[in-house]
């Protein structure tokens, strides 16, 4: 699935005392986005939940897992504190099971909205904190969005595929070439 990889540049993001340790263990942040009370909209948070237990069992202490309803301005600060960031969100796009794209910065923010796009979060990171780490968006295909906790069977199958892909990635957290569509 990966078309190519590139090692992360972590040393310039740490102070000298942490250099030796950080050069081995880049700080990785995986962020599930969505509302678990809205069927397949909960794909991102459920992925985060699954990865949380796995990361602990694997002893991958430099991988931080979190989830929230949507991206907000303060996430720019969190992005700035990591060497690799992976957002995961349910998608209504016309993709087969999942897709991975590199998030490029933008300053375009919609009218009166209370959430931010991944692109605008990266844009804000650049303005406030300088060069951001590589940021990716994992789009997981969803189908139903009603008030219910139960996800569709197809969405869960997509999630299973994504989970394998992400776990493989997190064992070797490097930059990857995108787009990827599966």
């Amino acid at each position: 699935m990966r078309m190519g990889t590139k090692s992360l540049h972590v040393s310039d993001r740490y102070d000298s005392e942490a250099l030796e340790f950080s050069a081995i263990m880049p700080r990785v942040f995986v962020y599930g986005i969505g509302n678990p009370g809205r069927q397949d909209d909960g794909l991102g948070p459920l992925l985060a939940e699954r990865l949380e237990g796995w990361v602990e069992s694997e002893g991958l202490s430099d991988i931080k897992i979190d989830a929230n309803y949507q991206l907000m301005a303060e996430d720019a600060h969190t992005v700035s504190e990591h060497d690799l960031v992976i957002f995961a969100d349910a998608s209504k796009e016309d993709i087969p099971s999942y897709a991975v794209s590199r998030v490029e910065a933008t300053g375009n923010i919609g009218f009166s909205t209370h959430s931010m796009t991944a692109e605008s979060v990266v844009g804000l990171t650049i303005e406030l904190y300088g060069t951001p780490p590589p940021v990716y968006m994992v789009h997981i295909k969803g189908y139903e969005w009603e008030y219910a906790a139960e996800m569709t069977e197809q969405a869960l199958q997509n999630l299973n595929q994504v989970e394998l892909f992400i776990k493989d990635w997190l064992k070797n957290p490097v930059e990857i070439q995108t787009p990827i569509t599966v």
Partner: peptide
């Protein structure tokens, strides 16, 4: 919008 899925699009 009470939606939490779509990311920030409100043209």
């Amino acid at each position: 919008s009470c939606a939490t899925h779509a990311l920030g699009e409100m043209p």
